[in-house]
Deep mutational scan, measured.
Amino acid sequence: TYYTVKSGDTLNKIAAQYGVSVANLRSWNGISGDLIFVGQKLIVKKG
């Protein structure tokens, strides 16, 4: 599943929405910090 980042989104918010961990979101998307951008597509695997 792909999720497109919207204004106001955070990794924590997206992780909670999908029932996954922030660590997994980072791993699946090659993100090291907490910086995400509006319009960015993130890979999300269902929890």
Score class of each variant (00 low, 15 high):
T1F: 15
T1G: 14
T1A: 10
T1P: 10
Y2L: 10
Y2T: 10
Y3R: 03
Y3G: 02
Y3C: 04
Y3H: 12
Y3F: 04
Y3K: 02
Y3E: 02
Y3L: 04
Y3S: 02
T4F: 09
T4L: 07
T4K: 08
T4V: 14
V5C: 05
V5M: 03
V5G: 02
V5W: 05
V5N: 01
V5L: 02
V5I: 07
V5H: 00
V5S: 03
V5P: 02
K6H: 09
K6V: 13
K6G: 09
K6N: 09
K6T: 11
K6E: 13
S7Y: 13
S7N: 12
S7G: 10
S7P: 13
S7K: 11
S7D: 15
S7A: 14
S7H: 14
S7Q: 14
G8F: 06
G8N: 07
G8L: 05
G8E: 06
G8Q: 06
D9S: 02
D9R: 00
D9M: 02
D9K: 01
D9A: 02
D9Q: 02
T10L: 04
T10A: 05
T10E: 05
T10N: 08
T10P: 01
T10R: 04
T10I: 04
T10D: 09
T10V: 05
T10K: 05
L11P: 03
L11K: 00
L11F: 05
L11E: 01
N12R: 11
N12V: 13
N12T: 11
N12W: 11
N12Q: 14
N12S: 14
N12G: 15
K13C: 08
K13F: 11
I14E: 00
I14S: 00
I14K: 00
I14C: 02
I14T: 01
A15H: 03
A15E: 03
A15C: 05
A15T: 02
A15Q: 02
A16R: 11
A16L: 14
A16I: 11
A16Y: 10
Q17I: 14
Q17G: 07
Q17P: 01
Q17Y: 12
Y18C: 04
Y18V: 10
Y18H: 13
Y18E: 07
G19T: 07
G19E: 11
G19V: 06
G19R: 08
G19F: 08
G19I: 05
V20S: 05
V20W: 03
V20E: 08
V20T: 12
V20L: 08
V20M: 06
V20A: 07
V20D: 03
S21C: 06
S21E: 09
S21P: 09
S21N: 08
S21G: 06
V22F: 03
V22H: 04
V22L: 10
V22S: 07
V22D: 05
V22T: 10
V22W: 02
V22R: 04
V22G: 04
A23F: 07
A23N: 10
A23H: 13
A23E: 13
A23V: 10
A23C: 13
N24E: 15
N24M: 12
N24Y: 08
N24V: 12
N24P: 02
N24I: 10
N24K: 09
N24S: 13
N24G: 06
L25S: 00
L25E: 00
L25K: 00
L25Q: 00
L25W: 00
L25R: 00
L25D: 00
L25Y: 00
L25V: 06
R26H: 06
R26L: 11
R26W: 04
R26I: 15
R26D: 02
R26N: 05
S27V: 11
S27Q: 12
S27R: 09
S27P: 01
W28T: 04
W28Q: 04
W28M: 08
W28D: 05
N29E: 00
N29C: 01
N29D: 00
N29L: 01
N29T: 02
N29Q: 01
G30P: 06
G30L: 10
G30Q: 11
G30S: 12
G30C: 08
G30W: 07
G30V: 08
G30T: 09
G30M: 11
G30K: 10
I31M: 10
I31N: 03
I31W: 04
I31Q: 03
I31A: 03
I31H: 03
I31V: 08
S32M: 14
S32N: 14
S32W: 09
S32G: 10
S32K: 10
G33W: 05
G33N: 10
G33F: 07
G33C: 06
G33V: 07
G33K: 08
G33E: 11
D34Y: 09
D34H: 09
D34C: 10
D34S: 09
L35Q: 12
L35D: 14
L35A: 11
L35F: 14
L35S: 12
L35M: 13
I36W: 03
I36L: 11
I36H: 02
I36S: 03
I36M: 06
I36P: 05
F37Q: 09
F37G: 06
F37P: 04
F37H: 14
F37Y: 11
F37A: 09
V38E: 14
V38R: 06
V38L: 09
V38M: 08
G39Y: 03
Q40I: 05
Q40R: 04
Q40T: 06
Q40N: 05
Q40A: 06
Q40C: 05
Q40D: 08
Q40E: 08
Q40W: 05
K41G: 07
K41Y: 09
K41A: 09
K41R: 12
K41W: 08
K41D: 09
K41Q: 14
L42R: 00
L42N: 00
L42P: 00
L42E: 00
L42Q: 00
L42F: 04
I43C: 07
I43Y: 08
I43E: 07
I43H: 07
I43R: 08
I43P: 00
I43W: 10
I43S: 05
I43F: 09
V44N: 01
V44F: 05
V44C: 05
V44S: 02
V44L: 07
V44G: 01
V44W: 03
V44M: 06
V44P: 01
V44T: 07
K45W: 15
K45T: 13
K45L: 15
K45P: 07
K45F: 13
K45N: 15
K45Q: 14
K45S: 15
K45V: 13
K45C: 06
K46P: 15
K46R: 13
K46F: 14
K46C: 12
K46V: 15
K46A: 15
K46D: 15
G47R: 09
G47D: 15
G47H: 14
G47C: 09
G47V: 14
G47K: 11
G47T: 11
G47I: 15
